[in-house]
Computed example of a mutant assay.
Amino acid sequence: MNSEKETFQQKSNIPKSLFYRFSQFVGFLLGARFFVALLLTLALYVSTFFLFNQDENFRKFVFDFKVHGIIFCTVLTILAGGIINQFYDFEKDHIVKPFRTRLQSFIKQKYFLYVYLVLSVFSLGVAWMISHRVFLFFIIYQFFMWFYSHKLSRMLIINNITFVSLTLYPFFGMMVYYETFSKKVLLMAVFLFLILLCIDIVKDTLTKSVDKAFGYITIPNYFKSKNTKIIIVSLLIITMAVSMKLILRTGISGFMAYYFTAGLFVFILCVYLLLKHTTKSNFITLNILRIWVFMGIIAMLLNGLEGKL
């Protein structure tokens, strides 16, 4: 490993100190899944202001420091969760994500653990200052983040459900905070849960052999490929049914109506790709679904801006 680092450094003519500092910085960002946390932060702000927050104007929302504090704690917890997850999955990631693990190798694992502890404690400290209920909320969140990485990620079906639930946990917290309970919000939560579940299972099909070798019992390496496809296609069909329910029964309009309508064709395309039974089609499906989740955030933002203006 050291010879590889030196060779790369010599070829690129980068000063040693700068090379290592940059490699450590990038390795840390990838290890902590900083860009995932950034996307979730955007999604939290957009959903909080345009979906859960029905009464406050923009000025009041900007100065609602309690909400910003909760989102800040969420970001720190997500970063800490990414670090502890890569710590437990390091050997598996060495095969599945060699480039990322090579960059992470510039930082010793013990330093990742130190940062994990600092982020976790700081997040809980801020949560305690907000309220005891918020502190309890993040204690539960952090515990299951750790428990998922330590144990639940290796358990059949529970791994997928827990991963998706932890992704949606902050949004559930905001929904409770604003007491926004409606048929539309519930159906949108079900829609997002289903599409994230599909993404996680499709992702597992791409790492099937490695997961099996390292003792991760996933749907693709427990069931046959045909049964796995049936499960994913069934979930996509249910997601399409939820989309139709949102369009026809909740009075949803604007960009979100276009989003859910276009989503029907996107999911049909994904079903077609999945039925081809190739690794390439699975990879394309995975990225289409990921992009569609991002497009949902943009659609909600545009829809909200249209309604506020």
Rank of each mutant, 00 (worst) to 15 (best):
F260L: 00
L194G: 03
G251N: 06
I140T: 13
A127S: 13
I217S: 13
G251R: 06
Y20D: 12
M175N: 03
I284M: 15
V242T: 04
V96L: 14
L194V: 09
F87C: 07
L38H: 07
L30I: 09
F50W: 10
T205N: 09
L206S: 12
F191W: 12
R100V: 11
I268Q: 12
F90A: 01
L197T: 06
L274P: 00
D89E: 10
L301W: 07
I161L: 11
F50V: 12
G69V: 00
T74Y: 00
M188P: 01
Y258H: 03
F19W: 12
L248I: 14
I107T: 04
F25E: 08
F283G: 09
M174R: 00
T77S: 14
G173N: 02
L119G: 00
L275T: 08
L79V: 05
F137E: 02
A127E: 01
I199V: 15
I107K: 02
G81V: 01
I95F: 11
M300R: 04
F63P: 05
L235G: 11
A43W: 04
Y114K: 04
T162N: 08
E56T: 09
K276E: 05
I130C: 05
Y111C: 13
S243Q: 02
I231D: 07
F112W: 02
N287Y: 12
L113F: 08
A37W: 06
L301Q: 11
G254M: 06
F65C: 08
Y222H: 11
T48Q: 10
Y111H: 12
L152V: 09
Y148F: 08
N221F: 06
R59Q: 13
V242G: 01
F138I: 06
L40K: 08
S182F: 08
F267E: 09
K208E: 13
K212T: 00
F143I: 10
F106N: 00
S17C: 05
I219P: 00
N159I: 03
Y114Q: 10
T228K: 02
A241S: 09
Y116H: 02
K245R: 10
W146A: 03
F163K: 13
Y272V: 15
